[in-house]
Write a protein that binds this DNA or RNA. Structure first.
Ligand SMILES: [Mn+2]
Ligand SMILES: [Mn+2]
Ligand SMILES: [Zn+2]
Ligand SMILES: [Zn+2]
Lengths: 149, 149
DNA sequence: ATGAAAATGAAACCCATTTTCATATTTGAA
DNA sequence: TTCAAATATGAAAATGGGTTTCATTTTCAT
């Protein structure tokens, strides 16, 4: 598995500064398996640097998303959630299972390998047909979790 | 292809009234291939009944989504978009290609058949493993469209 | 060190969606 | 039919995640 460059190098490549705020946000994302909202991240960031602003967190997340080291999700609970893009994550590429009642999110990667092969193929065909440059994809399953039956 | 019950029957089955507002919203969704926002729908609804309120449109959409005749999407442009669920639509089940620049959405169903087989299989395995009752899924490809290159 | 460019935080703002509440419509029991 | 309870509706106000503004601070190249 080819590991891509770290976020620090990505930032300088894009010509953007490697600030402590950004480092804090990147570390928080690196250290969790969860799907944190901007405010979740802000709360943790304040533990590290009490003077950090929520706005700065939003700005870091937007930047990271734009340059592809973070993936932004909407799971339907009214706030965006973020995780490191798979290339930059410890974890493997994975997809999601979402409870429409309690909004619990489960990562799964058991079947992703087969999915990815098909996605690759589909991606190629779609790119050609619609002249799209495809950057990434999502697969979400929605349903009712054990607990919410 | 097994066609499921119409939305009218669905409503009465759920014990909810078949009002003209709801009919207007259902018809608008039935008559388009597009991915309309609540306000898009409201604007069209006013053409039919100038006294209808935006709130009522939101309420109808929430109801329809809850009972499964409408699927609500977030394509990342800050407002929810709605389409009839595939069982209730003329169109076949399809997936989406989204331009992250101009937010254009393309339906595709060329490759969905193969995707669906795999999804079915995955769905079954995930249901079992995580004790989830899976209701539906989405597959979205994100990229840059021809026009936004 | 020094000035320009980039980044930051607080407050104000935006805007899609939800809530409230008073009014209207529907339903079905009497 | 009639009438009261249950439901649905519209306008206005409230909510809340996210963005913009702007004055200040930090960083970087010279
Ligand atoms: Mn995940
Ligand atoms: Mn569609
Ligand atoms: Zn649940
Ligand atoms: Zn585009």
């Amino acid at each position: 598995m080819m590991e891509s460059a770290g976020w620090q190098e990505q930032l300088s490549r894009v010509g953007v500064r490697l600030t402590t705020s950004r480092e804090i946000v990147a570390n928080i994302l690196h250290d969790t398996q969860r799907h944190l909202s901007a405010e979740d991240i802000f709360i943790r960031a304040v533990q590290v640097n009490p003077s950090i602003g929520l706005t700065t967190v939003y700005r870091a997340l937007e930047l990271f998303t734009d340059i592809g080291i973070v993936q932004k999700f909407d799971f339907g609970d009214g706030k965006a959630r973020y995780e490191l893009a798979s290339d930059h994550h410890n974890a493997e590429h994975h997809h999601h299972l979402i409870c429409i009642k309690c909004k619990k999110i489960i990562n799964y990667d058991d079947f992703v390998q087969e999915e990815l092969e098909l996605m690759k193929k589909t991606e190629k065909a779609l790119s050609k047909k619609h002249h799209f440059k495809i950057m990434h994809h999502i697969i979400h399953f929605y349903g009712i979790c054990e607990h919410c039956r």
